[in-house]
Computed example of a mutant assay.
Amino acid sequence: MRKKKTNWILYLAAFLLVLWPLSQKIYLSQYFTKVILHPQKTGITTLHFYDVERKRPVVTEIWYPIDPETPSINPLGMWVRCGEARDAVLSNQKQTYPLVVLSHGHGGDRFNIAWLAEVLAANGYIVASMDHYGNTWNNKIPEFYIKTWERPKDVSFVIDQILHNSLFQDRVNQNRIGFSGYSLGATTGLWIAGACVKEIEQSTFQQICNQQLGKTVYLDKLKETDFKQVFQSFHDQRISAFFVMAPALGWMFTEQSLKKIQPPFYIVASKQDEIAPLEQNAKWFAKIMNRVSLKILKGNANHYTFLNRATSVGKRFLHPKFYEDPQGVDRKKIQESLAKEAVLFFNQMPSQ
């Protein structure tokens, strides 16, 4: 009896698969993909790029797949991270790997969302995360807090460098390049995807920046800054998919440019985000843009839930708001869920 029932289920499944309309672009394979969520180790290396034209250092951390037998060590630092096989040989399991570029939040650093970089690397991605010069916790330069348009330039510059780097140039699938960013890093992604800045008065700019970027943008610096570049397009057509978390500065972009964005976006935001309020940012982007999936974290998750978990060392130096979660929030569990969704999303990344 059980055998007949099993055969009936298999026949029905086969029948439904035949009838499944391909035009829906729903890929069953993603639901059966095994995702490594707890990597024991990844390859990692630090590349010190320098943009001569802009006279700007762009320090970049690269995570990448390695063979299982590769030795590793437990890293030190402020953020919880998996084992590191520093400067190890890239795995030869595949000839080329897709590339994902990461952009950190305002005043953060290249390790802020290492939890995502590690999972992506363990699942077959080369991941590049840069420090945005002058806008990191250990290198605060007000001039570059204002010149946010240097960020998308950093991303395109890093892609250029990796594609010509002796370690990675022949190992990156240049037709499959993705992007992920957090907070101001997520906004950087919108810029790269083709969003353009609208005209806005400096007084309004100052007020909103103080609201969403913290009181680090001063009026005297605004008066000294040449804003001509902010209205340029920073669209990089090489990037074909965007996974962004807690995007900010929704007021900055024109609706027309957002509507023209072609690559698929996966936007994640939290209901309790006071830094980048949901209605004016993530929801607004999702309403205007065409190819968007929006995930809203329920409960008390906030803007900082997306940051790495802090080590005991980190808790000595960081403000508690960056690592202490509100009641009922399990940061580790949330990040595991998001990392899996990111892997599945990028697995379906369209080739350029």
Score class of each variant (00 low, 15 high):
A195V: 08
Y64I: 03
D325F: 12
M349D: 10
K333E: 06
Q272A: 11
L76N: 15
G43T: 01
E279T: 13
C196L: 13
F306E: 01
T33E: 14
E255R: 09
E84H: 13
K283M: 11
L222K: 07
R331I: 02
I208S: 07
N112F: 05
S183T: 12
V197W: 00
Q207I: 15
T70L: 06
Y145E: 08
D87G: 04
K223F: 04
K140E: 00
G43K: 03
Q327T: 09
R309L: 10
Y31N: 13
P264Q: 05
F345D: 03
H235D: 02
K34N: 15
E199L: 04
F322S: 07
W20K: 08
Q202E: 10
T148A: 04
Q348T: 14
Q262L: 15
T254K: 11
I73Y: 11
I66H: 01
K198P: 00
P39D: 08
K259N: 13
N135F: 02
E274V: 08
I62V: 05
G43V: 03
W251G: 05
F234N: 01
H104G: 02
K198Y: 02
F144T: 03
N308P: 04
R110A: 00
T136G: 00
I334K: 04
W115Y: 08
L120G: 00
N92P: 00
A122I: 06
F345L: 06
T70W: 15
P142M: 09
A88F: 05
D273P: 06
F205G: 01
V343W: 02
Y125R: 02
K41Q: 12
N173P: 08
M252W: 00
D170Q: 14
K147G: 02
Q207L: 13
F285M: 15
S233F: 05
A301Y: 03
L16H: 04
N92M: 09
Y50S: 10
G83E: 10
